[in-house]
Amino acid sequence: MNTPERSVELDCRGMLCPLPVIELAKRHTEVPVGELVVVLADDVAARTDIPAWCRMRGQEFVGEDGPGRYVVRRLS
């Protein structure tokens, strides 16, 4: 997947849960509504917790477009 220019990439590799989700919560507002945030995380819990965060916070989980590369669309 090509990430549009206005996306932001959060490198959370080496962080343990819940730090990648905390980082996502704090920094997803750096992109305009409708744009993408990419989270790089090697903590196994991210695979479940990033989609769960999206569901709980009304954001869109676009998918995992590579191992440990989670794409989220800001909806609000």
Binding site: P18, P51, M56
Partner: peptide, 24 residues
């Protein structure tokens, strides 16, 4: 059931299978 409380450092496979938040 969070990963950090498990000896394996992996989250509960039950919570994972349900697709619900595993931390906290």
């Amino acid at each position: 059931g969070s990963a950090c409380t498990a000896s394996t450092l992996t989250p509960s496979h039950v919570l994972e299978a349900m697709g619900v938040l595993t931390h906290g």
